[in-house]
Amino acid sequence: MSKPHTPHFPGGPASHPHPDAHTEQRIRTFHPRRGRVTHGQRAALERRWADWGVDLDGTPLDLDKLFADADLAPDRPVVLEIGFGMGDATAAMAAADPGTGILAADVHTPGQGNLVHLAEREGLRNVRVANGDAVVLLRDMLAPESLAGLRVYFPDPWPKARHHKRRMIQPEFLALAVSRLRPGATVHCATDWEPYAEQMLEVLTAEPGLVNAYATTSGYAEPRPAFRPMTKFERQGIAKGHVVHDLVFERR
């Protein structure tokens, strides 16, 4: 395996934590995005990345050690969130549920910096920020049945038909994710792109390890679960007339 590229700045997340992953012939859970890192975001990463950050380089991850200073119970639940944007909703959920560890994965450096800044400002010791491809995390770094939940909120819908294969919620990815969930764990997805919601519902329903918590109604969680804060992207979608669908499934 190649060595991870050096960070964008000293003490920060690696630019390519698992370079070999980019050569694999598979669909990845992210689309590389670069943006300007503010002084505050950079300072937060430099102060806290060594304690709260993890580069997804393929090294097996011990969740007990990762959250050792978070004052969680010995059997602490840890939820994986993939694609947290700027982290505002993640921070709000962490504050509302301090007994749950949130491992939040993304590749957007400004978002990583903002979430670390929010966690530091609000004293949220139950947040850890993962940098890189979540498939590497799920496949190589997490033990089976180690997670209490999976959250995927407003992933890229790839609206063009020829790009649908790039969507994250696909049978192969879901089967891998489910293998890392403990019995009773929750899978919670949300999208404001109705055709993607329909695909999500189809793929999640077809996964034998999951059961729809709203199977007796429309299949979607209605109304929107109160514990999920409304995101900036969600508000933008609603302003454009988009309908938001939440999907909640449980691990058998």
Rank of each mutant, 00 (worst) to 15 (best):
M1R: 15
M1F: 06
H5R: 11
T6E: 14
P7Q: 10
F9L: 07
F9H: 13
F9M: 06
F9W: 13
P10L: 01
G12S: 08
G12K: 04
A14K: 12
S15H: 02
P17G: 04
A21Q: 14
Q25F: 03
R26V: 07
R26H: 01
R28V: 12
T29H: 07
V37W: 00
V37P: 02
V37R: 03
T38K: 11
Q41A: 13
Q41N: 13
R42F: 01
A44H: 01
E46D: 02
W49K: 04
A50F: 03
W52T: 07
W52K: 00
D55P: 02
D57S: 13
G58D: 00
T59A: 14
P60D: 03
P60Q: 08
L61G: 03
D62L: 05
L63M: 03
D64K: 13
D64F: 00
L66N: 05
L66V: 14
F67N: 05
F67E: 01
D69K: 00
D71E: 03
P74D: 12
D75Q: 11
D75N: 15
R76S: 14
V78S: 11
V79E: 02
L80I: 09
I82C: 10
G83H: 00
M93W: 08
A94E: 11
A96H: 09
D97Q: 14
D97H: 12
P98A: 09
T100K: 06
G101C: 08
G101W: 05
L103Q: 12
L103E: 06
P110G: 02
Q112W: 00
N114S: 15
V116K: 01
V116N: 00
L118F: 01
E120A: 15
E120Y: 07
G123W: 04
G123H: 03
R125H: 04
N126C: 10
V129G: 07
V129A: 08
G132N: 06
D133M: 02
L137V: 07
R139S: 13
M141V: 01
A143V: 00
P144Q: 04
E145D: 14
S146D: 10
S146E: 09
G149R: 10
L150V: 13
R151L: 15
V152Q: 12
F154R: 04
D156P: 09
P157T: 11
P159T: 10
R162H: 15
R162K: 15
H163Q: 13
H163M: 08
H164R: 14
K165M: 05
K165C: 01
R167W: 08
R167T: 10
M168P: 02
Q170A: 11
F173Q: 05
F173R: 08
F173Y: 12
V178C: 12
V178H: 14
L181R: 07
R182Q: 15
R182G: 03
G184S: 10
C189R: 01
T191S: 13
E194L: 11
Y196L: 12
A197Q: 12
A197W: 09
E198A: 15
Q199T: 14
E202S: 14
E202C: 09
E202I: 02
V203P: 12
L204G: 06
T205V: 03
A206F: 03
G209H: 03
L210C: 10
L210H: 10
L210N: 04
T217C: 03
T231V: 06
K232I: 04
F233A: 01
Q236V: 06
A239Q: 10
G241C: 06
H242S: 10
H242D: 11
H245A: 05
H245P: 00
H245Y: 14
D246E: 09
D246H: 15
V248K: 09
F249I: 09
E250L: 13
